[in-house]
């Protein structure tokens, strides 16, 4: 027998993810898959939103808009918008479950009360939920990419890289969503998240190039997480790949890592009082 060791607490604050084990976190993914299987209409509906945007704005509105220049080459408007929508689709897939869905499980359904009475830890919960949202986001991205290819909107063999990149976008937003949601108190707070996501979707150079903005606004857009995804996906989709893109990828990797760590720490304080 040994005494409870308060000294272990600061260590865990630094590395809250140290308590996660992939084998255990996987069980929570399995749980979510059972729920998805029962509610597949809800899952499928998440795919249609960006698809409808692509048809109405990219293809429909695109007839009124001239071609854009990407990497010095002219591209049709639909082909210009499609990777932006792919990035938004990945974002939505990642963030929907870790905001609305997760807040409900945390505050009302008390789903994790039972989970934490098993060998799973709060860090397993963080990893498992992010992994579930990541999977869901990746499925959306793959489906959307297939639609893009079907409509002839893929401009380069580099586009194959769009799938892992979209998955990274989904992962970053899933982690960010969880980190934010774990700090929310009420549904009003959750609505604030939606209020942040919508302008990000509309203004992160999704529908038009960054050059439209005056300097200061342009810099504001440059630091948003979705912008990184849009730039990466547009470049790879249209074959305008440059070494500078590594910075955008690094941004998303760091965002995912830091967010997941913050989320795990917060969930621990919340769920294991």
């Amino acid at each position: 027998m040994s005494a409870a060791r308060p000294t272990s607490v600061p260590l865990l604050r630094l590395t809250p993810l140290a308590l996660a084990r992939p084998g255990r976190a996987r069980r929570l993914v399995e749980r979510n898959l059972v729920v998805y299987r029962r509610g597949w209409t809800y899952v499928v509906s998440g795919f249609f939103e960006p698809f409808l945007y692509l048809l109405s704005i990219g293809v429909g509105l695109g007839h009124l808009v001239g071609s854009q220049r990407v990497g010095g080459h002219p591209v049709g408007y639909a082909a210009f918008v499609a990777p932006g929508l792919l990035a938004s689709s990945a974002m939505n897939g990642g963030i929907l479950d870790t905001t609305y869905g997760l807040f409900f499980k945390l505050k009302y359904a008390h789903t994790y009360e039972a989970v934490l009475s098993t060998p799973l830890t709060s860090a397993d919960v963080a990893v498992g939920e992010v992994a579930s949202a990541f999977l869901r986001g990746s499925v959306y991205s793959a489906a959307f990419l297939a639609v893009m290819a079907g409509l002839g909107l893929v401009g380069s063999p580099w586009a194959l890289c769009c799938l892992p990149i979209a998955a990274l976008v989904g992962l970053a937003f899933a982690s960010l969503g969880l980190a934010v949601t774990a700090h929310l108190r009420s549904w009003q707070d959750v609505d604030m998240v939606a209020l942040a996501v919508l302008p990000m979707f509309l203004f992160s150079a999704t529908f038009y190039p960054l050059s439209i903005y005056p300097g200061a606004v342009g810099w504001l857009v440059r630091v948003t997480p979705l912008y990184q995804g849009v730039v990466l996906l547009r470049a790879f989709d249209l074959g305008a790949v440059t070494p500078g893109l590594w910075w955008h990828a690094a941004y998303l990797v760091v965002l995912a890592g830091v967010s997941l760590s913050v989320a795990a720490g917060r969930l621990r304080r919340l769920l294991v009082p």
């Binding site: 749980r31 059972v34 729920v35 029962r38 008390h110 789903t111 009360e113 039972a114």
Partner: peptide
């Protein structure tokens, strides 16, 4: 537990 904490999303 005191509150049943059953998973309401599952059968």
């Amino acid at each position: 537990p005191q509150e049943d904490a059953l998973d309401a999303e599952l059968s």
